Simulated assay, not measured.
Amino acid sequence: MGPSGLASALVASGALQPDWLPTFKAVPRELFVPDRIWPGIADGTRQNPMVDRTKAPDGWLTAVYSDIPLTTQWDDGNHTGDGLGKTPSSSSSQPHMVFSMLADLDVKDGHRVLEIGTGTGWNSGLLAHRLGGGNVVSIEFDAAVAKGAMENQRAAGLSPLVIVGDGRRGYTGGAPYDRIIATCSVGEVPHAWVDQTLTGGLIVTPWGTLYGGEAIARLTVDGGTASGRFTRSSAFMRLRQQRPNRPPHDAYLKGQAWPADGERSTTTLSPVEVGGWVEQFAIGLQMSGAFWSVERYDDGTYTLWTYSTDTLSWASTDYEPGAESFEVVQSGPRRLWDETEAAYLWWEGHGRPGFDRFGLSVDSDGERAWLDSPDHPVPAVS
């Protein structure tokens, strides 16, 4: 698939709106992609082997004009090998998501835009072509990534202002903005973004819970507050300063063999049922300070481990294909599987809502997720 094929697919899907089509054609993705890339798949569940443009130019170009994300850096630049690193830390986002978020942003001529997370420079390059370089500011924490983005943009004849800095703080030198867009996810919307956006302006950002699940929040700013619904599922790299600190498994059983001091029970709720992206999101909204991991076995069974961030509580839930009940072990002051069940049943009892029924409100006191209306906050499990 070349640029015209990708454009046709994006237009057909509704992601690429007619007002963005001239910019798509004028600012080709290939000018913003380095020689070495790791093609992914749209849902982020798998990473393919590295493709080197100097060795496989056709494969590289095919990847660039496929509707997939492309990892361009691992481990904050500390991984330099051909294989996969531990954590992807910079990328060229999936084109469908890029243009869907730009549609959410709803820019107009003359708007000033702040982007959080420059990456390869393609997204802010698209904005600069549409609005003019003088109306676009982009912040990138990694100086090497920012340098590469600026080189890409200059080669494309584009000149947004690229700042090396902490994206949480925004950039007061260019404020106020009509629009702020983040190309990294957050677990908490920095209030500086709200303060630097004009009343009536928009903030578009991926937002996710510690437990899991993520969606695009589209927030309208009104003075010192911002509120709005989630528009679609997403899976972005986390803002570096908000990366979660998840203690290792060994911090929980305190050197004892499983089940240690855990209490046994059974459940009819399959661990599979709580593993979907929207299910994780709904559970995470209700279960603060909790996360999970999976331990898989050769026979197709697995254990879902749930942990509290304070290392005081844990739960294990064993999955067997075809089983009607599943063994649970829980330890600590929080009964984490009981909380998971309660959160799942709340979601199920409200009609299994998708991301677009949830919303987020942000003010000086923090932020609150809600269902259908700000008057209906999502409750914490107890």
Rank of each mutant, 00 (worst) to 15 (best):
D250R: 15
P353L: 05
E273N: 14
V294Q: 13
V294M: 14
P160G: 03
T309H: 06
G165E: 08
A290E: 07
T311S: 10
S92H: 06
K254M: 09
G187D: 11
D261I: 08
G300Y: 11
G351H: 10
W207M: 09
L253E: 01
S90L: 08
D299M: 10
Y171D: 09
I68S: 04
W292Y: 15
Y319W: 14
P34Q: 03
D52P: 10
R238F: 09
G300E: 14
G289R: 10
S270N: 12
T172V: 14
D195V: 12
W370V: 02
G228T: 04
G224V: 09
H96D: 11
Q153G: 01
V186L: 06
A156S: 14
L127P: 02
P39L: 05
M1T: 13
E188C: 11
G170P: 07
Q17T: 15
W207E: 06
S325T: 12
S89H: 08
L312C: 07
D363Y: 10
A217V: 02
V378S: 02
G83S: 13
E279F: 00
S91W: 03
R169A: 14
G157N: 11
R36E: 13
A26P: 07
M237E: 01
G85N: 11
P244T: 09
L253F: 15
H96C: 09
T199K: 03
I180K: 07
L16W: 09
F326M: 06
V278R: 03
G284L: 02
A342W: 05
G354Y: 01
Q196G: 05
K147I: 00
H350Y: 12
P353N: 07
V107M: 08
A226L: 05
F230Q: 00
V11K: 14
L70V: 12
G44C: 09
H79I: 00
A144N: 14
W346K: 03
T303V: 15
S293F: 07
N123D: 13
P28M: 04
D82S: 14
I37K: 02
L102A: 09
Q196M: 09
V221H: 00
Y297I: 01
P18W: 13
G201W: 00
R246A: 01
S331Y: 04
K55F: 12
T80F: 09
T80C: 02
G354C: 03
A323E: 11
G262I: 05
Q17L: 15
S270E: 14
Y65W: 15
T172R: 15
A146C: 09
L10G: 00
A315S: 15
E324A: 14
K25R: 15
V381F: 03
W346L: 13
D318K: 02
A149R: 01
L210K: 06
D356W: 05
G5S: 12
E324F: 11
G174T: 05
D299V: 09
M97N: 02
L61P: 00
D356L: 00
I116L: 08
S313G: 08
I41R: 08
V362N: 00
A323Y: 11
V136D: 02
L6D: 05
L219Q: 03
P34R: 01
S100W: 01
V186F: 13
I68G: 03
E367A: 11
